[in-house]
Amino acid sequence: MNKVLIVAEHDGTTLNPSTPKCVTCAADIPNSEITIAVFADAPDDCAQQAAKLEGVAEVAAVARPENANQLAATLAPQLAALAADYDYLLAPSSTFGKDVLPRAAALLGVGQLSDIMEVIDARSFRRPIYAGNAIVTCSVAEGSKVVATVRVASYRAAPAGSNAAPINPVSLDVALPDHTRFVELRAGGGDRPDLQTARCVISGGRGVGSADNFKLIYDLAEKLGAGVGASRAAVDAGYVANDMQVGQTGKIIAPELYMAFGISGAIQHLTGIKDAGTIVAVNKDPEAPIFEIADIGLVGDLFEIIPELDQSLSG
């Protein structure tokens, strides 16, 4: 039996969809027995959501007031203590997982694999390097704990079914540092669906032309219930905030439908969307590189096409 511990990502009340994606990855490990660890001040809600996920054998709920904010400095020592009895320790390769997991790995005295996209066998994995321009096979020696972040864009979420895994409260006798303090979280997108979990994402690039013009993109997104993204060029031009950036230096996403308006398709942007189900590109330049990878392309002026799309969608 390979005992796998997954660190749940959550906001205190809701499990982030990155967690069920880690479950799908963990299920690919031969003979895996999956435990989800929920660190929170009041873990009940998230623990119950985790217990429903198909393939989960157990939920470990670690309640502690210090866990109200998910600080790496506070979580890592608890995680290292809990992971001692496990063969695998996984976290999503979100900013949460990237922050906490290497700290826990170092406390455990082992290295880490980042962004695993495929489980080959119990010890071997594939992961992207050079911004996804090469895929490399990595093998962890027998007897060493496997610590890895999971590239969430490579996995579908494990369904929340009729499973009812036992929820076990765990108390860890670990001293926690007070050298790191949470001040505030300034959230970005408001009510719009989260970029990394939205079924559909609409993005604008430099071709949108201004922050005001982005309203066109927001309105279309609202009509489709889509998340809104942007290219780095649009972010650098000041049209939108950086947390909307899609690409190697922003978010790597895999929605079922991705629609790019006025985005030429720099390599760094394409790296962030190549796992999308269907890519639609609208650009007035027929030579734009984004057409090389788009499933459906339309050459034209986005200021004419978006209103027409809006009409066709209403019809």
Binding site: A134, V136, L298
Partner: peptide, 27 residues
């Protein structure tokens, strides 16, 4: 090193899809 690095491969490429002529064809 923690892990042995094995084979390097080029990433799978997406192929060029279809072009449509206007918004209603796209929808």
């Amino acid at each position: 090193p923690y892990c042995a690095i094995g084979e390097h491969a080029a990433p799978p490429q997406r192929s060029r899809g279809v072009m449509v002529n206007n918004a209603s064809e796209l929808v």
